[in-house]
Simulated assay, not measured.
Amino acid sequence: MGVNRKLAAAMDACQIKQVELARRINTEIGALTGREGHVTDRDIRRWLDGKTQWPQAKQRVCVEKVLGRSAIDLGFVPRSKSAAQAPPEDPMYRRTLFAAATGTAVALTTGAARPRLGQSDVNRFRAEYAEIVADDQALGGAQQVENHAVELAMRIKSSLAAGGASAWVRTKLYCLASDVTCSAAFAAIDAQARTRARIGLDNKQGPGR
């Protein structure tokens, strides 16, 4: 771990200070995910000091866009070989991610009474999403994180298709499904699987879509 001179040089070349870089990254995160980011100048200092060597995927994507260079060229160091090497794209897996992203998951039950979804279902899915976020922060770029996120997004969509719910609960679940799909996409970015990532980010679902 040491000072990230490549990042410092890129910031100097673009004449961007730490506070301004954080602001621009947050704006790009907002454009990418629909929610403005929370990067601060303290985070930028940690990058420059080398304390954070491999930022979160959405942060890396956006700093790449702001500074016009790849994460590697900006001096960031992948936490594992899988994060730096592109695995083969699986057409079947791309279709699965597309289904989760576009909300085409179908109900797994037919001919049965439609279960009523409530706050307990929102809490259950949200707790599982928290596990995915924790795994992503700990592992970064792991296929299991992406797989878990895709599978959870599909189950949320399937539950919405199979069960009745109030407008409030449906809105909460659609927003959660969108967040989970974004997590799958960012895990794909970590793994350099850009096609899968683009599917997820281009088609993330929310209420009313």
Rank of each mutant, 00 (worst) to 15 (best):
W168V: 15
R114E: 10
F76M: 04
R69S: 13
A130W: 08
Q59L: 02
R124E: 11
L97Y: 09
Q56W: 09
P115T: 00
P91S: 10
S82F: 12
P78M: 06
T181D: 02
L67N: 01
T110G: 13
G163L: 08
V63P: 00
R69Y: 06
I132R: 00
P88I: 06
S178V: 00
G103K: 00
L139V: 07
K157P: 06
L173C: 09
D90Q: 05
F98I: 07
T109G: 10
E89P: 00
T104N: 03
I156Y: 08
R69C: 08
I132E: 01
D73T: 03
L139K: 11
Y129E: 09
A153D: 06
A84H: 01
V169L: 04
V63L: 10
A134N: 02
D135V: 01
K157A: 15
K172C: 14
Y93Q: 13
V145L: 03
V169F: 03
P78N: 02
V61A: 11
P115R: 08
E151T: 15
R79T: 10
P78E: 02
D179I: 01
K65L: 07
R95E: 15
A149K: 01
E89K: 06
A107K: 05
P87S: 07
E146M: 07
L67P: 01
L173Y: 03
V66H: 01
S159F: 08
A149G: 04
E151A: 15
A142V: 05
V145R: 05
